[in-house]
Design a binder for these strands. Sequence first.
DNA 1: ACTACGATGAACT
DNA 2: GTTCATCGTAGTA
Length: 160
Amino acid sequence: MVDGVGGIIVETEAYHPEDAASHAFIGQTPRNRAMFAGPGHVYVYRSYGIHWCFNFVCADASAVLVRAIEPTAGLAEMAERRGLADPRKLCSGPGKLAQALGISDRHDGLRLDSTPFRFTPSTDPLPVVIGPRIGISKAAELPWRFGVAGSAFLSRNFPT
DNA sequence: ACTACGATGAACT
DNA sequence: GTTCATCGTAGTA
């Protein structure tokens, strides 16, 4: 949740510093400094010169890319930012969700447990499906993409 | 200084 | 299914 706008995370990908696809793989740089700031920080980076992508930093410069959200709050604001109203298309991808939540470089390096963020771990366990990551050319075979089984808000379906 | 290339998405055919 | 917009970063010279 960001400034009261957000929802339930339904799709993520994991990145580890020893994983060639991770931005932390090459060591610390000005861009990825937030990944080395410790657990609970937020790492935001520009993708393809156009989009923003939103990550949670975990221990040891590993991170979780938030790839999709099921919108539950602030739908109207999301729709305005995205220029669409279809709830399935508001946050079904890393760049889309960042746009819908108003995330940009000014959030890079902030902490997840302080404003404007509000992070609440889910109470009831959700059925999770696992698959290969998307959109990368290195270590693409690692099954480090996680999603809520059967969710209609995923960026793409998982391979059977 | 110069170049190549994305942890993407939207618009096409 | 394919094409491409668009620019910061990192690698090379």
